[in-house]
Each structure stands twice: as structure tokens, then as C-alpha cells.
Design a protein around this nucleic acid. Structure first.
Lengths: 245, 245
DNA sequence: CACGGGCAGAATGTGCACATTTTTTGGAGG
DNA sequence: CCTCCAAAAAATGTGCACATTCTGCCCGTG
């Protein structure tokens, strides 16, 4: 009797995750303009799912502070002020100082070898002018540091910060200048190798201040407009038919 | 035609928050046993609100990692393992090291005066044997440290950690022994006064290891039972009538 | 007596209809 | 031409009915 029960839109736990991932990716890749409104009904049409599902995902993203939710007014892509961005960077800086203070107590050859390998990758990407890979590896370096501690709580904390700053970067950083200088990463590893905590913290701090110093504010106070359907165009609708107008 | 429309349970934004706060308080105060199941229907009856509202709150608490949500199986109060607790404490320890590395750069008389005042409060409470106040102030010390940086991101990070560990404490810490020794807090402030980062980090670290060492695991693998109605008994139902059985 | 299969009962998940709030629109008055 | 206000239109929030999934229990079989 349940021969096609799954098609009439009941109970499909995978759809939640699919919609969530699609919107999250668009956010992280900076494809959604800051300040734009994400209304429930249009998104439901685009993804071909019920509005309730969109609503749930939107609220979830709001709880994760990736979207700005205002009661009765829906969801918007956050438009961080320059101060907001600075605060996120400062938090990252402070967290990394703590991470270094822990790592310096447990440096071993394996850890150093892994970090060296990462640095080598970074240099290789930089030398062959592969900006995309450089940016990715540059961020991954800091993730690598926290992950080395092996504490999921800490890794998740940094992940949250990074996901938010990566959105911000697309607003404030001119082009793809957000590449951390490989030399500065190398200096951090060198200080770790010497078990010199003070130097590691100082170098890391300088490194972050350096990046923060490059932030530029090119703010146009106007609320942007954007064609949502185009943003999510690459993905086929989750169900066969989109709702007809 | 809408003469009493607002009574039949439409649109009451305050109820969400009220239910959320009630359950959150019960969690933070340790009134809910670890591992117990929070079913939607009974809670809806207890609070006298619709099941949808309870559902929303439960999922929100799950997103904040304060409840453990399993698809199609509902919400449970988390039953952290001893390793879970250690990880939260370690994260707190690492974060505080970072906080200290930032604070040591901006110690001034005002900050020191405030910290001294806090220490005085702690000592006073300890001397007059006020355990409840001692516990509260003891936790507040670490909050005070992060707040001194003035970065909401960092403060929120610590807040999340503390709210989780406070739940855990009720499971693992014997009685109310979770009072940090005032002397150890004093030693941290003293190191800050000397602008001695290495000592501050070392003292803080020792302090946390000391607390972590007191953790005891008294695990009975049985799933506990508890009368939810009794836990939330103090609060009057949000609407006049509870649903009749 | 142990073990497994399936059959109620209960609990969770979802679409829908409708209430409420916000936003836009259209026009009247200054 | 601008401002203000009311009513329509659109968007968000909520309760409800029902579908789906899970759980515990009962009973038949080896």
C-alpha cells in the first residue's frame, strides 16, 4: 500500500540536509550578497520543497548565527560592520594563542612533520600562482593547528569562527588578498619547534594583526538585490516539478 | 468575528521564550537528571502550550547542544561521559590561556582593581561559609576575565562552555566541591599584575588541572526516571487550563 | 524456555489552512 | 511634490490532522 508514498512529500529526512547544505555552501562561497533577504516562499519554489522545510532550515541557520533572523520579518544574510569583522578576527587570534600554549607542551616530531608538510603545500601553491588553493590552504593552516590538539570542542569553536569570517571576507577583503603570508605561518611553526611559547604567541598575534590591517570597508548602505533563482541555479530541484506560478 | 481570537492559542511570541527559559533553567540548575527523555506531549501538557511550541524549543536547545536530539526519537538530557567533561574543561583551559595572553597586554589599574574586588567578594563568601555564593562567584571569576577583553564573541564562547560544564558538574562533581580555590584565582591576578604571561598561563593551567582532577565518575548505566511535572511544578501553566487527560 | 516476528500503541515529523504581522500601494490632503 | 494614512497584498507564525517511525508486548515456533 505504500507503493509511492515517499513521493507525495511526506517524511524525507534527507531533504532537510540537502537544502541546508545548498544554502550553507552559497553562504560560505560568498555567492549571496550581504544584506539580502531570504524569503521562505521563493526559496520553497526554487528548491521544490515545502515552505515548512525552508523555514526550519532558515531558523537553524539563524541559530548558528549564519543568518540574521528578525521575528515576523524573516531571514537576511548578515551585513557585518567592520567592527564585527574585527571582533571575529580578534576572537580567532585569542583562541589561537591558547591553542599554541597547549601545543607547545606537546610538540613532537610527528606534529612538526605534519605542519612542515602543510607549509610545503602552501609554498608550492603560492609559487605556481594558484590563488584558489593558496587561500584554501592558508585558512586550513589554522584549522590544522587546532585540530592538532584533538579536542572536538575547540575545533568546532574555530570552525564556527572561520565560517563566519569567510563570509565576511567576501565583503571586506579586496579580491583574494586574504592569503596569509606563508612565511608568517612558517615562523609560527619555527617557534613551536623551539618550544618558545612567547615567540609563538607574538608571531601569531602579529600575523593576525597583519591580516586584520588589510581589511577594507567599501560600504554602500543600499540594500542589494539579487536573483535567488540564479544563485541556486546549478542545483536541480529536489522534487521533479517546481511549483508552477 | 475575531472577538476572542487571541485566546485560542494563536500568535504569542512570549511563550516561546518562557518555555525556553523554564527548561533551560531546569537544565542549568541540574534539576533534570542526565539521560532522561523529554517527550513533546507531556511537556506540552505541563506547560499548557501546543506541542509545536515545545517541539520548536526542544530543537532549539538541541541546536545549542544543550539537549541531545535523535531523529524520530526525541530529545534527551545529555549524559556526558567523563571524557566529554574533560574535553569541555580542556577547551575552557585553552581558551583562558588565550584570554590571558590578550589581557596581559592591556592590564591597567582599573582592571586590576575590579579583579581584586572580585577576589575580595570570593574570600568573604568563603569565610562566612556561604557555599552557594562561593560556587557562583568562583565561576564568575573566569567569566569576568573574558568579559574584560570586551569581545562578545569570546564571551559567548565561554558562556556556551560554562553552561555545558555546569550541567556536567551536577553529574560528576561530588556535592558542591566545584569551588575554585580563591588562592589560585589570586595567583592568576598576581601574575597579571606583574605582566608575567608565562606564569599566568601556568597558574591558570594548574588551576584547571586541579579542578579536573577532582572529577569523579559515579556512573550507573541505568536510564533514570523522573517526574517532569514535579520538576516544573513551581511554574504556573502559561495558559489557564492544562489539557485534561 | 529461549528466540524471533509482527502487531498495536505511542511518539515524532510534515503538509496544510488560516491567523497575524509587516510591507507595499494608492490616493487624499496639505 | 511631499507626507501621511488606510487598505490590499505579501510574508511570517501557529495549530491541527494525519503520515511515518519507533517501541514494547504478545504469541507462535523450534
Amino acid at each position: 500500500m505504500a507503493m509511492r508514498a515517499q513521493r507525495i512529500g511526506k517524511a524525507n529526512p534527507a531533504e532537510d540536509e540537502a537544502v541546508y547544505q545548498a544554502i550553507l555552501r552559497a553562504l560560505l562561497e560568498g555567492k549571496l550578497k550581504a544584506g539580502i533577504k531570504l524569503a521562505e516562499t521563493p526559496l520553497a519554489d526554487i528548491f521544490g520543497v515545502s515552505r515548512e522545510r525552508i523555514r526550519k532550515v532558515l531558523h537553524r541557520l539563524g541559530a548558528e548565527r549564519r543568518l540574521e533572523m528578525i521575528p515576523n520579518r524573516g531571514a537576511r544574510v548578515p551585513r557585518p560592520t567592520l567592527d564585527d569583522v574585527r571582533r571575529v578576527y580578534e576572537a580567532h587570534r585569542v583562541l589561537e594563542a591558547g591553542v599554541l600554549s597547549q601545543l607547545v607542551l606537546r610538540v613532537d616530531d610527528l606534529l612538526l612533520a605534519r605542519l612542515d608538510a602543510h607549509l610545503a603545500e602552501e609554498r608550492a601553491a603560492a609559487q605556481r600562482g594558484d590563488r584558489a588553493t593558496s587561500v584554501r590552504l592558508s585558512g586550513a593552516f589554522h584549522v590544522h593547528l587546532v585540530d592538532s590538539i584533538g579536542n572536538p570542542e575547540l575545533s568546532r569553536m574555530l570552525g564556527d569562527l572561520l565560517s563566519r569570517s569567510s563570509v565576511m571576507v567576501s565583503v571586506y577583503e579586496p579580491a583574494a588578498q586574504s592569503i596569509c603570508a606563508v612565511d608568517e605561518h612558517g615562523a609560527i611553526v619555527a617557534a613551536l619547534r623551539d618550544r618558545d611559547l612567547m615567540r609563538a604567541i607574538a608571531v601569531s598575534r602579529e600575523h593576525f594583526l597583519h591580516v586584520e590591517g588589510r581589511l577594507r570597508l567599501d560600504e554602500d548602505a543600499t540594500t542589494p538585490t539579487q536573483d535567488l533563482a540564479a544563485v541556486f541555479a546549478g542545483r536541480r530541484p529536489l522534487r521533479g516539478k517546481r511549483r508552477s506560478a
